[in-house]
Each structure stands twice: as C-alpha cells, then as structure tokens.
Amino acid sequence: MSSVLYDVPGPRAIARNRILAIVTVAVVLALVGFVILRMLETGQFSAEKWFVFTFSNVWMGIFNALGNTLAAFALAAVLSVILGFVLAIGRLSDHAWVRVPVTVITELFRAVPVLVFMMLLYYGLPVVGVKMDPYWAVVIALMAYNGSVLAEVLRAGVESLPRGQGEAGYAIGLRKSGVLRLILLPQAIRAMLPVIVAQLVVTMKDTALGFIITYPELLYYAKQLTSQQGRPILQSAFVIGGIYILMCLILSGIARWVEIRTRRSTKVLGIVAGAADPRTHEEGTDTELIAMQRGAGKFHGTSTGA
C-alpha cells in the first residue's frame, strides 16, 4: 500500500523510526542535563550571578536598548520591503536598460555582508569627510542587504506563478504594470509570505551587529552588563536571548495572523466568483477567472485607452 508521495512505512520502518526518535530524545535530554549540571557546579544559578538584575536601573537600561533595537528594526524592515518591491519590479522589467542595472545593484547588495556594510558606512565614510550616525549606518546596511534578498524572493514568487495568470490580465487589456499590481504581486506575496517573514526575523536579529559600531541596542547593553558585579555573562545572554526569542515569536504570530486573514479573503473571493460564473467550478480555471474579475473591477472605466 502506498500514498501519492511516498510508500507507507511497514512494521520494520515504524519500529526503526520509533527507535531513532527515542535515541534522539535521549541524546537531547543528556546534553541539556550536562549543561545544567555544569552550570550548577560553576555556580551560574547563584544569587550573586543574578544580583545585577535586581536593580530597576538595569531593567530601564534593557528597555531603552530594546527601544533602540525596535527603532532600527522597524525602519529597516519598512525600507527593506519598499526596496525589495522596487528592485523586484526592476528585475522583471522588459527593458534591458532598467533590468541590467537593477540586477547589478541587487547582486552587489546581496554579496556584501551586513557587518562589512555597517563598518564601511560608519568607519569608512569619515575618511572622505562624511560622518554617519550609528543608527543610520545600521538601518541603511540592513535595508540594502535584506531589501535585495526580498527582491529575489518576490521575483521568484512572481515567476513561479502559472503563465495563465499574466495572460488573463493581458486578455482584458491590462498593461504589464496593472498585471503586476493587480494579479501577480498579490499572489506572489501570499505564496512567499513565510519566506518574507523569515527574512524580517533575520533583519531583527541582525540589528545585534550594531554593537560593533557602538549602536546602543540590546547586545551592546548586554556586553556592558557582563562587566558588572559577579560577571553575569551567561545570565545576560539568557535574558537578552529570551527577549530576542520573544520578539521573533511575536513577529511570526503576526505573520501567521495575516496569512490566515489573506487566505480567508481569498476563499470568500472564490465563493463570490463561483456564484457569479458557474465556470469557476471547472478544474484549473478558478484562479485565472478570479484574477480576471479582480483586474476587470479595477480596470473598468480607467484604462479604456490602453
């Protein structure tokens, strides 16, 4: 007996998988136990190591550093998405004089590491008489790298769609800009949303690189805490790492909520289209007819001269 994608495991395969699962769990628990044991033996759970976190000024400093991290991430994320759209549209252009320079810029931004970009902006520009604030060095570096990555994500999403999607838009008289804006990009964003969110999570975590150019974000403040009484190195890492984990979980939760909402709106649109035209129940025509109806709704009365 087999399914469409793989053979159903037999008794031996099931037993083998269970053994592997038990061994994996045992190894993970052993490693966790070893780490906890070593921390106990070295006194990492002692009150002295956590004493610094009993002061309200320390937590105020953590919250200020968190605000700086979120400020850099928020602006960098918005600019990265905007830059990603611009570069993606440029790479999809039919004109070589647009496509080629945009391709060169995209590949250049992707090739330069974020840390190198930050150091060039902060330490390199003063050599030519231009001084840049650490905040803007972090934001611009994150925008350039992540924007170029998002451009490739969006371009791949558009090019992965069936050709009939674009042809349906052209059939009702839309220009290429209308096809991209009304039909292709909305579907590409919906399909590539998990990848986009993953890249935004990377953007958030890469703000920690700003501590090298003295930007006062979370990691920079954690480094200052390690020099306090008791040398709370691991403790600072646990606290700051926990904050990063919480922020990533919140961002992923928001993305999941947006994905569910967009999926629900797509289903409602399909029901309405099916009620208006029985042909939408035929296999393989749903998406193209819905796209045509969406485009026609925006196009009607506005592009008759196209």
Rank of each mutant, 00 (worst) to 15 (best):
I89V: 15
S93K: 09
I62C: 04
D94W: 14
N57Y: 11
T54M: 10
A96N: 15
L40G: 14
V86F: 12
E41I: 10
A96D: 15
I89F: 15
L75I: 09
W50N: 02
K49P: 01
G43M: 06
V58G: 04
I62E: 09
W97D: 10
S93W: 10
L75T: 03
G90W: 04
V100G: 03
A88M: 09
A76G: 05
S56M: 13
A76T: 01
R38G: 04
I82R: 00
F73E: 06
I89W: 14
N68A: 04
S93A: 13
Q44S: 06
V102Y: 01
A88L: 04
A88C: 07
T42L: 06
A76P: 11
A77T: 02
L79E: 00
I62V: 11
F85L: 13
N64C: 14
V58W: 10
A77S: 12
G67N: 05
F85S: 11
V102Q: 00
F63T: 05
V100L: 12
F51E: 15
H95L: 12
M39A: 04
V58M: 08
A71L: 11
D94C: 08
M39I: 00
G61C: 07
E48D: 14
V81L: 12
F73D: 03
L83Y: 03
G43T: 05
L92M: 13
L83A: 06
V86N: 08
L70F: 07
W97P: 12
T69Q: 02
T54V: 10
W59A: 07
